[in-house]
Design a protein around this nucleic acid. Structure first.
Length: 270
DNA sequence: AACAATGTTCAGTC
DNA sequence: GGACTGAACATTGT
């Protein structure tokens, strides 16, 4: 997915363009994307209302709805994008999380990749466009199951939360119950920026290292939001066999940490 | 054709 | 209860 920065971009598009428009119709027929709801349930819950506010915590975003309606949760999964269009057909949002925006040779946009659509009375639409189909739209999310947002957590809380666990530090910062919003690429980027071995037990880190990791993470999140996504991180292009650390030139090494492919600089990160 | 992929979740095990 | 592994989920791209 889209990680925290991509979700924040999607949230801001909704905030700017999708609020206060009357919902005329909803296509919720994709029963996997709309799990656990049956087809028609989301439609019934939403038609006639408006989205009044949009919020985000980590990678989860949700909208408040008018007339005391339910909260509409949207999770982008591995490849989801939110697109909001105007009555004119002009479209906003998106972002291609694969291929650095390069054009792919085949099928840039199949209609069936629109997994969920809200049709506004003015003719515009809000669509969840999701090639991988691991995104999700559902009602009344359990927001409190998530830890504090990784972009907003204060350094003291961050040190407490991360330093408390004996899990590898990368697994710990990616645990959405502990800290919300950090995905695989953001974790590799922040750990590389902070020069910390992702395999080290989080509880072995010094207070200074935790402070440095907190700073690196916030900086990586801000940079990614500014530049259009986590794939713009400085280390991301070097996460490949034969890759070298752009800071010291040492080889990058691949491992599995917390069940995810992990790349680190062999000199600066162990 | 096999494998990896920026996501979550759940079962089994130590 | 924690933490790890592996699988599953659905699909695309290499």
């Amino acid at each position: 997915m889209p990680e925290l920065p991509e979700v924040e971009s999607a949230r801001s598009v909704i905030a700017a363009r999708a609020l206060d428009r009357t919902i005329e119709d909803v296509d919720d027929r994709d029963s996997y994307e709309c799990r656990p709801h049956a087809p028609g349930e989301l439609r019934t819950a939403l038609v006639g209302r408006t989205l009044t506010e949009v919020h985000r915590r980590g990678k989860l975003m949700w909208c408040e709805t008018s007339d005391d309606g339910p909260r509409l949760a949207v999770h982008l999964g591995m490849a989801g994008r939110v697109l909001v269009s105007e009555a004119s057909g002009e479209s906003h949002g998106g972002g291609d999380y694969h291929r650095n925006g390069r054009a792919q040779g085949s099928s840039p946009r199949k209609p069936e990749w629109d997994r969920f659509t809200i049709v506004f009375a003015d003719g515009g639409r809000l669509r969840l466009f999701d090639k991988r189909r691991l995104g999700r739209v559902y009602l009344d999310p359990d927001v409190d199951a998530l830890g504090p947002d990784a972009g907003e957590v204060r350094v003291g809380d961050f040190r407490d939360i991360v330093g408390r666990s004996a899990a590898p530090v990368k697994a710990r910062i990616m645990d959405q119950h502990a800290l919300a919003g950090v995905g695989n690429l953001l974790a590799d980027e922040a750990l590389w920026q902070a020069a910390i071995d992702p395999r080290r037990p989080a509880s072995d880190l010094t207070q200074d290292e935790l402070t440095g990791l907190h700073r690196a993470l916030r900086s990586a999140i801000r940079a990614a939001i500014r530049h259009g996504g986590v794939h713009t991180g400085e280390i991301i292009a070097h996460r490949t066999k034969g890759g070298h650390c752009p800071r010291c030139g040492a080889e990058m090494a691949r491992a599995t940490v917390g069940g995810r492919t992990t790349w680190r600089c062999t000199r600066e990160q162990g």
